[in-house]
Design a protein around this nucleic acid. Structure first.
Length: 494
DNA sequence: TTTGATT
């Protein structure tokens, strides 16, 4: 093959390669890849290895097109695709190409045989044959580092990572103001080095001022980044229903919870404690519940009452959700007719060993929950079954994302019971309005709640109501602190 | 014990 390169370099072609296929031989159509794609004959459709490598070919004369190049590279194996790069607008040959062999091995052979081994006629640099940038993406050697101290500089990060390999690139992510976002990219020369750094450093230490231990992982691929963007878009466009997440996360538990929640919200809304959105949300949840009950993703749930309900399920199971469901024995709901203050019951059910007590008798939470106790049975639309038909497709499940509401709608809650997760937190604040997100902070290392979190409403009035109701609410030995989340630019007076 | 992180 070296000989062939030599002939090529002389501007000649031997008849096993270039001349064979050049110049308007029958079937060449000007943009063909030099391949026989015969739709009628599957056996000739090339298959490529899953681990095939896309090669970049550089320094090729502009008078050589696919059919000229093909024979040159066929030496090393069957070609899957060969494309000369052309200018998008002028269509001009850019002097380079992409080449994918069917087999990975062929690419490696071609690379070692050709890369910088010969200069093609008219070129003043040797031919380039190497994996295309899109192949390695650099991503398999590039790390994302999170939970850095915001004071740490590039040099600090380098020092931390240099023991594990050669660092080609190190960048701290910074906001528009130049402040570190507490994370960085570190690019090593090789995947192995990057992996070594992950093994040694991930979770290994907690930087002063960071809220949990160091995060070291491979950076997102382009695809992941795109996905992330799309998710964010979806979130911003309000296409997302916080309930959907819980279905995904907790399955049958969440489903049951949502049904109950729908009942609460419906009845509470009727009692006039919630804004009109609540009614809407309640209806939505009922729809969601109905959807899942029609066998989409939910684990089967046997109604414990109304025993005549046939499998296949059209009747709401809400009034018959068995009590001991859920996480840590937390039912998420006060018992519905035991004469106990409902708000207390929420916390008395396995969450904490102490008697709970609300701060005031006229506590809005109790009033809200009181609505539940008035709930006297299936006030469900007879159209339960029909609702699902309005949604022939399951709604898209969009994973939970952090979501702040407008200013004044976001609460910071401290002194949460250790057992509380996002769902319980949301549960606790739903009576006050439309909760668009709830987040309990979790220590990455231990997976333990840090006993604080956020709840966001879609309007400030709900947030205020929730503060009035829940700030100082006693749970066990502790009292909840519920206050507006600090705005980002607080503590920066000027 | 005190503010949702990050490509």
């Amino acid at each position: 093959m070296y000989i062939k390169m030599a002939t090529l370099a002389n501007g000649q072609a031997d008849n096993t390669s270039l001349s064979n296929n050049s110049h308007g031989s029958p079937g060449s159509n000007g943009h063909m890849n030099g391949l026989n794609h015969s739709p009628g004959n599957p056996s000739t459709i090339p298959m490529k290895d899953h681990d095939a490598i896309k090669l970049f070919i550089g320094q090729i004369p502009r008078n050589l097109d696919e059919k000229d190049l093909k024979p040159l590279f066929e030496e090393f194996g069957k070609i899957y695709e060969l494309t000369v790069l052309k200018d998008r607008f002028t269509g001009m040959h850019k002097g380079c190409a992409f080449l994918t062999y069917c087999e990975r091995e062929s690419a490696l052979k071609a690379q070692s045989a050709l890369h910088e081994q010969k200069t093609l006629p008219g070129m003043n640099r040797p031919i380039q044959v190497k994996p295309a940038d899109s192949e390695s993406r650099g991503e398999d050697r590039k790390l994302f580092v999170g939970m850095l101290n915001k004071q740490q500089s590039e040099d600090d990060v380098r020092r931390l990572f240099e023991a594990f390999g050669n660092i080609e690139e190190c960048t701290i992510l910074r906001g528009p103001d130049g402040n570190s976002k507490g994370c960085a990219f570190v690019k090593y020369s090789s995947h192995a080095e990057a992996q070594a750094a992950i093994n040694a450093l991930h979770g290994s230490q907690t930087m002063p001022g960071a809220s949990s231990s160091l995060v070291v992982k491979f950076a997102d691929t382009d695809k992941e980044r795109t996905m992330r963007r799309m998710q964010q878009m979806a979130g911003q466009m309000g296409m997302f229903n916080p309930m959907a997440i819980q279905f995904g996360a907790y399955g049958a538990y969440a489903q049951a919870l949502m049904q109950q929640q729908a009942a609460i919200m419906a009845s509470v809304a009727q009692g006039g404690y919630l804004n009109p959105m609540a009614a809407f949300a309640a209806a939505q949840m009922q729809q969601m519940a109905a959807l899942n009950m029609n066998g989409l993703a939910a684990a089967p749930m046997t109604p414990t009452s109304g025993g005549s309900t046939p499998p296949g399920i059209t009747a709401p199971a809400v009034p018959s959700i068995p009590s001991p469901i859920g996480v840590n024995g937390f039912t998420g709901l006060p018992p519905q007719a035991n004469g106990q203050p409902a708000a207390e019951a929420v916390f008395a059910n396995g969450i904490h060993p102490y008697p709970a007590q609300s701060p005031t008798a006229a506590d809005p939470l109790q009033q809200a929950y009181a609505g539940v106790q008035q709930y006297a049975g299936p006030a469900y639309p007879a159209a339960y079954g029909q609702i699902s038909q309005a949604f022939p497709q399951p709604p898209p499940m969009i994973p939970q994302q952090q979501r702040e509401g407008p200013e004044g709608c976001n609460l910071f809650i401290y002194h949460l019971p250790q057992e509380f997760g996002d769902a319980e937190l949301m549960q606790m604040f739903l009576p006050f309005g439309n909760v668009i997100s709830s987040k309990v902070f979790v220590d990455r290392a231990t997976n333990q709640s840090k006993c604080f979190g956020f709840v966001s409403f879609d309007n400030p009035a709900s947030a205020q109501t929730a503060i009035q109701a829940m700030n100082g609410f006693q749970i066990g030995m502790k009292r909840l602190k519920v206050q507006l989340k600090r705005p980002k630019d607080a503590n920066r007076p000027y």
